[in-house]
Nucleic acid binder design. Structure first.
Lengths: 234, 234, 234, 234
DNA sequence: GATGAATGAGCCTTCATTCAT
DNA sequence: AATGAATGAAGGCTCATTCAT
């Protein structure tokens, strides 16, 4: 009888594994297609083919195209939210900020279509935009603006702070979203490891210059000297 | 008989005017709808209703949805192309660069949906993306990179130049494309006159700092001190 | 200019006529198909083909299959409701009752599928059944029961009255609904003019016997002698 | 070894019992669902859920939805056929006729959905209708008509005989099929024991009046005095 | 030129049925 | 025998586009 139980256990385990595998395939395929064609432009059949499953099978996992879209967004967004929450409560130090940047960039590398989805939502003012904006981007941007307001930048034209804060969004998410454009324009692959590293360093340099108080260096005299000379790069 | 002719002339003039008016209405409506819902997500009926014309009438002006989409892109793109051409051959001076920036921004203000369309094309790797990238963004970016390579920035890590160049795209087009996101996130209207002005100044400051040789000022010692203190703002 | 107006008028009239024609075709086709296959079993394509219109055209007239179904029911039901209302307020005389019977039967002949729809609704306890039951059958049945209770039937077992009243439903609607069964069973066509006439007479005879007070004949001694001998038939 | 056999036997018996139980559950569930939604409108999953079995399991019992439908019809029809056969060859007496009526009514009570299925088949002219009509209703109706033609009704308008015969169908099967309609219309439950009894008496009274020769009473002078006064009711 | 009616193609979704365990 | 996963075949409905006036 334990045999039977065990066999059941094995069976169920195998099935669960297959289910998880199928679900991942579906999510990946959906992410790619949604990112390229948008929610409306995506045909469910297309996703199913890309995931190599029958359309009906897809509907065994998600009750509708919209639900699948939500799931894709959710998968891309949840880790970011968690990361942000960690940083918000963590020690405010330069290493920590750099760490967040690198982790976010690695996340965007892992889900290269996620940035596009975010942009599509923003542009089309989709129904997830409010959640997206309030739950994720607002705290991020406000935190940056808050840091800008600390002593180091004191006395600087505050009306520019929001615009400055958004630069971080443009340089991270925008880099991935516009990758196809830059690829065609500059004949380089923005998603290559080297270029991701460049972009990450760009953002870190920006942080160094604009949020100098995060480092212990109190002697920083030129707060916005954002990009130093070659030698300073690690 | 001349009366008739003249009457014909008048009639035709009136007709032509009405036609032009209708066409503009259609283009405007199409631009708005395409920007929000994308090419696939836009229903021709929706455009027709927004333009207050019958669907069949719309087809008297444009042979297909795709053609209408092209027309919208074309209308937004042509002035930009011309502006860029002027600058390319014009005198390389700071005022000229500033002038281009302001004109581009004003153009994007005038057609606030155009940036979104560009982004949608880029993200979805639409069929106009190659043209867009090669004909417009490539010369723009290469020009900026070229300027970065001039003496002022000599000795600096050249691998970052492309990334730096793209910042200009992000700060101009991206500002408009992501306006809905920033509006929801920051509770401000990125398209308000004041905020457009802020964003424009941001870009000009960047130019000042990163392309210092454009101004005659040879004494600039810290090329990337991109944003100076409040007082320096005009 | 009056020409133009008139032309417009003619045009619109012609179009309206075509529209009405198409709508009737659709309704007729729908009635037939719904009656045969039921609401769920009917494919919209089938209706469209039977009506010789494109499926999309059908949706220009009715927003959904359900709405079309309702329209069919409505068309069959409205005249009956009106007829019933007339009788309710009219003079209670035998001729009047006979008149109602004949009119109802003629109506059921005119829309031979209507009875089937009613039965299908009843059997499947469709969502229209409550309306149907309360708005139409209840007053009809109650009226009959009321008449039964008048002097002529006084002293008779009242618990049978409802069962007696329903006989009228069975003999009218049921005759049409079960026509296919009786046709196969008896090798006759229940919908032939002669058989409709027979059935009508049957009902009239029932009325004569069961509601004798409607005729002025007070001398009726055997109230339930429902079917008299051959000679009495006109 | 005999132990094993015996155990096998016990096991098989238990298995068989469980199988029979499952099959009954499936049939009952199917009958209910088919009656309400019709063949086309019924989803196999719905039946499976109502029977509390997996859909695939259901297919271990019946090879297709149609086959299951047939089985339901068959189960309802076979006892009726047998009953009819008995009467046909049995003694033609009033008690016997009454007996058949009561048994049929009891059967319809036992399978309250069966009447609905019959009506659905008739209305939709399903593929079982011919069998149904020829094998069951035709002999029944012809027998009744034959009785009507016997001396008692001699001289009466024969063209009404078929119509008269069908009344028995309407009052038995129709009573069950239209039960939902009458329930809504009259605020009574036609399937309550009392009302079933009423309806049965109605039919018996009709038989008494219309087929008087079945009783030995030759003195009956008014053949169609179908419903006598209260006192005559047992 | 303008418009209401009409249509072929296709999309999302569901369903009966089968497969694999 | 029983079940969860998988699938091919529609089915209801919409959409871009054309027709006829």
């Amino acid at each position: 009888m334990p045999d039977l139980k065990e066999e059941h256990g094995t069976r169920q385990a195998a099935q669960a594994e297959r289910t998880a595998f199928t679900e991942k395939r579906v999510l990946d395929a959906a992410a790619g297609t949604f990112a390229r064609r948008g929610l409306a432009g995506t045909r469910v059949r297309e996703i199913a083919e890309a995931a190599d499953v029958n359309v009906a099978t897809l509907y065994n996992y998600y009750p509708s195209k919209d639900a699948l879209y939500e799931a894709v967004l959710e998968r891309g967004l949840r880790p970011l939210t968690e990361k942000l929450a960690e940083f918000a409560v963590g020690s405010r130090e330069l290493e920590s900020a750099h760490q967040v940047v690198r982790e976010v960039m690695q996340h965007l590398v892992k889900y290269p279509n996620f940035s596009k989805l975010i942009y599509l939502e923003a542009i089309s003012e989709g129904e997830f935009l409010p959640t997206l904006a309030r739950k994720w981007f607002r705290p991020l941007l406000e935190q940056v603006i808050g840091e800008l307001k600390t002593d180091a930048m004191a006395g600087f034209d505050e009306s520019l702070f929001p615009a400055i804060a958004t630069i971080f969004v443009h340089l991270s998410f925008g880099h991935f979203a516009l990758a196809p454009l830059f690829k065609e324009s500059l004949d380089i692959d923005p998603l290559s490891e080297a270029n991701i590293e460049s972009q990450t360093r760009m953002i870190e340099l920006l942080i160094n210059q604009m949020l100098p108080h995060l480092s212990g260096a109190g002697e920083q005299t030129n707060p916005f000297n954002i990009i130093s000379t070659k030698q300073t790069n690690p």
